[in-house]
Amino acid sequence: MGRCLSRCLVGTGLLLAASLGAGFSAGALGDQHWEALHGDVRRGDVVPLETILDWLDAHYIGEVLEVEVERENGYIEYEIKLLGPQNQVVAFEFDGQSGRLMSIEGVRIDDMRRP
């Protein structure tokens, strides 16, 4: 599977539109929320998704299945689900402002860690 995270995400058309979290529902809330998110990234208030994907790619083996972006009370969180080499699904949650990994949930997570 190798270095597939960023390329697979873009190659499969999942870029942020894969699954929209609270506050970013495309149909119900419109483009203004996407514009606000892009503005937050441009100002440096939110870490770009690419930075998070690069970190994941450097530390874990897997293919991106889903990306969710949630905004609650001004707080941004990224949740990224990866498919591991043993077909395990692992969810990674990141703080959108700092880029810090907050939690990992799934099975056989150690089998996905890069040496």
Score class of each variant (00 low, 15 high):
A18S: 15
G21Q: 05
L101Y: 08
V89H: 10
W55H: 11
E72V: 15
E66P: 00
D40F: 05
G13S: 08
R7C: 07
D111W: 09
A36L: 14
S103V: 05
E72H: 10
R3W: 06
E72D: 11
L29E: 15
I109L: 11
D111V: 02
V107Y: 10
A26I: 05
R108K: 07
L56W: 10
R114F: 09
M102Y: 02
D40H: 11
D31N: 08
L20Y: 03
G30T: 05
C4Y: 09
I52H: 05
A18P: 02
E35Y: 12
G21H: 05
T12D: 06
V89S: 04
A28R: 15
L82Y: 04
I52K: 06
V47D: 01
V46Q: 02
A28Q: 13
A26K: 12
D111L: 13
I52D: 01
G30R: 12
E105S: 14
E68M: 04
Q86V: 04
F92Q: 07
L15E: 00
E66T: 07
H33I: 11
T12S: 12
R113T: 02
R71E: 13
L101I: 02
W55K: 02
A91D: 15
F92Y: 15
G30K: 03
V90W: 08
L82V: 04
G30W: 08
L101R: 06
V89Q: 15
R7V: 13
G30S: 05
V89N: 12
I76K: 10
C8E: 04
E77G: 02
Y78C: 04
V107H: 13
G13V: 02
L65K: 10
E63V: 12
H59M: 10
F92L: 06
D57F: 08
Q88H: 12
E72M: 10
V10Q: 08
G74Q: 12
A36W: 15
S25N: 14
R108L: 14
R114Y: 10
G106T: 03
V64R: 03
I61L: 14
V10H: 07
M102K: 15
R108I: 00
W34R: 06
E77D: 06
R100T: 10
I104Q: 04
A26D: 04
F94P: 02
F24W: 07
L83E: 07
N73V: 08
A91R: 14
E105C: 04
S103Q: 13
L9R: 01
M1C: 03
Q86S: 06
A18Q: 09
D111F: 05
D111G: 00
E66R: 13
M112I: 14
G62T: 05
G99I: 02
D45S: 01
F94T: 03
G44K: 03
E63T: 06
I80G: 03
I76R: 15
R113D: 03
L53T: 07
A26S: 08
M102Q: 15
L56C: 07
V47E: 00
G27N: 03
G11W: 01
G11M: 00
R71V: 14
L101V: 08
Q86A: 09
